[in-house]
């Protein structure tokens, strides 16, 4: 087993980001989409912390702290919107939440 370098962490971050993208594209349930979005934000954080350690530059960790705070706010908003969708449609399947046509 070779030594673990920066590229290993970056590859894992890329895999996590793509899994999140896959989830956003395929999930039809609104909360499942939110879960996948959190995966994407985590992939970014993994990248940032890996850079911070290997550079080394503390700013990467500072950036990651901000990303966590923004993700928390984003999740709050997402849950509020899910509840609003649920109250109006009585379900949260996004492919049926498509009433407007141009």
């Amino acid at each position: 087993m070779s030594a673990i370098g920066l590229n290993h962490f970056l590859a894992l971050g890329a895999v996590l980001f793509c899994l999140g993208t896959y989830g956003v594209l395929t999930r039809r349930n609104a909360i499942a989409v939110l879960l996948s979005l959190e995966l994407m934000f985590n992939a970014v954080n993994l990248n940032l912390v890996a850079f911070a350690r290997f550079m080394p530059n503390l700013d990467g960790v500072v950036l990651a702290v901000f990303v966590i705070a923004v993700a928390a706010a984003e999740a709050t908003v997402g849950v509020a919107l899910v509840l609003s969708i649920y109250r109006n449609f009585r379900h949260i399947d996004l492919d049926q939440v498509d009433t407007m046509k141009g």
């Binding site: 979005l37 919107l81 899910v82 609003s84 498509d98």
Partner: peptide, 14 residues
Amino acid sequence: NERASAEAGMKYFV
């Protein structure tokens, strides 16, 4: 209480 509005919010959010 409007479906279209909730839908717009969710689409914009995602």
